[in-house]
Computed example of a mutant assay.
Amino acid sequence: MSRVQPVVSVRNLSKAYPLRAWWGGKGTVFRAVHDVSFDIAPGETLGLVGESGSGKSTIGRAVTMLNPPTAGTVAFEGTDLATLSPRALRRMRSRIQTVFQDPYAALNPRMSVGAYVAEAFRLHRPDMNATERRAAVAHLFERVGLDPAFMGRFPHQFSGGQRQRICIARAIALKPSFIVADEPIAALDVSIQAQVVNLLQDLQADLGLAYLFISHDLRMVRYLCHRVAVLWRGRIVELAESDRLYEDPRHPYTRRLLAAVPLPDPAAERARLAARARDEQADGLPGDLVEVAPGHWVADH
């Protein structure tokens, strides 16, 4: 769906989980994600939004092969990741990184943060000696706005925002071209969220990174993302450029999702709640995506 050669191309991705059979009955399958397709161009940020349980994080893990899809393909820089051997996939992981929601859970509490970031070099750059690794980590700390003197400290000695900066430093250590940011600001104070988002933007401009940005924060998604995909019941129901989607949402679920963000104008809020009540009459399973305008895709409803 992108006019530029994509860095990531996802086609008909589905993910299902088997459910346990009770009392000798037949086990069933839970379909978390069904038939999802999208492209991400170099240097682009695609936002993925939807309510809890819609399958956002499942897609993020499937795209990075942390939890491989049940069906469909994930092509990274033209290579189908499912066809790679474990060794080749490990080499490819230096180009694909993830920033998780909870930075404290992502860090090893028994390792200094400097050693944590240096682990990427130790695993993927065996040609570097200890002095070179330390210099590289110090540069990364400066790049994400941390004092290199903190390299010997442990995770519990940092604030939430500082921990997320450390995780971002680890993510960019090997100069990836694609990062999945899975709710990277959800666990942070509001005053810190903007700083982390601005850091992600600066790194994108400097390094040419492509992001899959997963978030509940619709305002931040509009600020950061070039395009937005709306996920409902494991399917993409609308995909468009950010401004177009926010100004002219076509799918009823997209309108309801945007209506969840309160407006300071009481009259506008009442009108929007009335429109939301009308949209709720249009519930149903999402159909195939149809291009209703150039670059604006909406599920048939």
Results as ranks from 00 to 15, higher is better:
Leu239Cys: 11
Arg122Pro: 01
Ala120Met: 11
Ala75Tyr: 00
Ala277Ile: 06
Arg270Pro: 02
Arg153Asn: 03
Gln201Glu: 13
Ser85Arg: 12
Leu258Thr: 10
Glu241Thr: 05
Arg170Asp: 05
Ser9Met: 03
Leu200Asn: 05
Val292Met: 02
Gly24Thr: 12
Gly60Pro: 06
Gly152Val: 04
Ile236Gln: 04
Leu257Gly: 10
Glu247Thr: 15
Ser14Tyr: 09
Phe76Ile: 09
His226Asn: 13
Trp297Cys: 07
Val190Met: 12
Ala16Val: 15
Glu44Phe: 05
Gln281Thr: 12
Lys15Phe: 07
Arg95Lys: 15
Gly145Gln: 05
Thr64Leu: 15
Leu258Glu: 02
Arg20Leu: 14
Gln193Asp: 08
Tyr211Leu: 03
Val298Ala: 13
Arg133Cys: 13
Leu289Pro: 04
Arg61Asp: 07
Asn198His: 10
Ser9Asn: 07
Met65Ile: 03
Leu218Lys: 00
Thr79Val: 15
Ile40Phe: 07
Pro155Cys: 10
Tyr223Trp: 13
Tyr223Gly: 06
Lys26Tyr: 05
Phe178Gly: 14
Gly284Ala: 14
Arg61Ala: 09
Gln157Leu: 00
Ser242Trp: 01
Ile214Leu: 00
Val228Asp: 01
Ser85Asp: 13
Ala260Lys: 02
Glu269Pro: 04
Phe178Leu: 13
Lys56Phe: 02
Phe121Lys: 00
Arg170Tyr: 05
Pro126His: 06
His251Trp: 10
Ser191Lys: 12
Arg93Glu: 11
His226Met: 03
Gln281Pro: 00
Gly27Lys: 13
Glu291Arg: 08
Leu203Asp: 12
Leu84Lys: 09
Asn12Asp: 15
Phe30Ala: 14
Glu280Leu: 15
Gly295Ser: 14
Phe178Gln: 09
Phe178Val: 13
Gly25Arg: 14
Gly27Asn: 10
Val180Asn: 11
Phe154Asn: 06
Glu132Val: 10
Tyr116Asn: 04
Gly208Leu: 07
Gly27Gln: 08
Met151His: 04
Asp283Arg: 14
Arg219Gln: 08
Ala181Trp: 11
Leu89Phe: 15
Val144Trp: 05
